[in-house]
Simulated scan of single mutants.
Amino acid sequence: MTVSDILDPQVDLDTLPARERILSTAYRLFYRDGIRATGIDRVIAEARITKVTFYRHFASKDALIVAFLELRHDRWMQWFRDALDRHATSGRRGRLPVVSAVEEWMSADSFRGCAFINSVNELGDELPQVHDIAARHKADMVATIKDTLPPGPHRARTAQALGIAVDGAAVHAQYSRGAAAAVKALATIATALLAETE
């Protein structure tokens, strides 16, 4: 799975069953344009299905939002684990794989920030499941980062700090419209955190 597969997947809608067609369309539009800015009528039109078909598969826009976030979590985590493994074996010497993986993610043309942070900002007060899914996503991300760190008594704390640094880097890259400064700062934080554990 490539970073494009999670940020801007290209699919042939005509080959998909109705539910996947709806979800694939929402997946692309919700991330690219925002959840609030994307109405159900637009999803229906771009998925090329009827309103009756939409409501046969999703009881409401909220149900579609939850399905989008669950799918995004699964795809992002699969890509992240693969990217960490790839960068661990072929990455730059002296650089944590998490820094290289995050750089790959944030440098993509279709990067629009973290879908989970964006969703909490847009809907966290209205749809409690958004908070729950985002919290689970971040916990899984931190656990995956922890698995890449050397053993030691501060491994969990270092992973948590790196997870927060990744989130900060993603927000910085989003508002500055560039990954370079965010990646450089993340690398500095990662190096400092590892030095503390040695």
Rank of each mutant, 00 (worst) to 15 (best):
A88I: 06
A190D: 09
R155C: 11
A37R: 14
A135F: 04
A63S: 15
T38C: 05
V43E: 00
R19P: 06
F80I: 02
R28I: 07
E196Y: 07
A135P: 02
A88W: 02
Y27F: 15
L127H: 00
S60W: 04
R72D: 10
L186M: 13
T15E: 15
R72A: 14
S119H: 01
P151I: 07
R48S: 12
L29A: 11
R36M: 04
V171Q: 09
V52L: 05
T158D: 03
E126F: 03
A88C: 01
L29F: 08
E104G: 04
I40L: 15
S176L: 15
Y175V: 14
W79Q: 03
G39I: 02
A192M: 13
A88Q: 15
V52E: 11
T144M: 04
A190Y: 05
I133S: 04
H73A: 12
I65C: 06
V120A: 13
D5P: 03
Y31K: 02
L64Y: 10
A165S: 12
D5I: 01
A83V: 07
L69T: 05
Q174C: 01
S4G: 13
A18K: 14
V120Q: 10
Y55M: 09
A179R: 04
K184Q: 14
A161G: 09
R86H: 15
T25W: 02
P150D: 08
E70Q: 14
A195Y: 04
F30G: 04
T50F: 02
L7M: 11
T89E: 13
V11N: 07
D140I: 01
A185Q: 12
L13W: 01
V98I: 14
A156H: 08
Y27G: 12
G39F: 01
A135C: 00
S4T: 14
R32S: 07
S4I: 00
Q129D: 11
L123P: 03
A101S: 13
C114G: 02
D41R: 12
I40A: 07
V102K: 03
K138H: 11
D8V: 07
L29T: 05
A185T: 13
A169Y: 07
G94L: 04
H137L: 08
E104V: 05
S100K: 00
V3D: 04
V52D: 08
I49P: 10
N118P: 00
M1L: 10
V171K: 06
A187G: 14
L84I: 11
A59Q: 11
R95I: 15
A135M: 12
I22M: 13
D12H: 10
A173D: 10
S107L: 05
H73K: 15
I117R: 09
F116G: 09
L29W: 05
V102R: 06
F54I: 04
E20T: 03
R177K: 10
R81N: 05
D82N: 09
Q129V: 09
H172N: 09
P150W: 01
P150R: 12
V43W: 05
F30Q: 01
V183P: 07
G91E: 10
A63L: 08
L123C: 08
H172C: 00
D140M: 09
F68R: 01
A165W: 11
A156C: 00
E122H: 03
A63Y: 06
N121R: 11
A88E: 14
R93F: 07
E198T: 13
A185E: 13
T38F: 00
A187T: 01
Y175F: 15
Q160W: 09
G39C: 06
S4V: 02
D5T: 08
M106D: 02
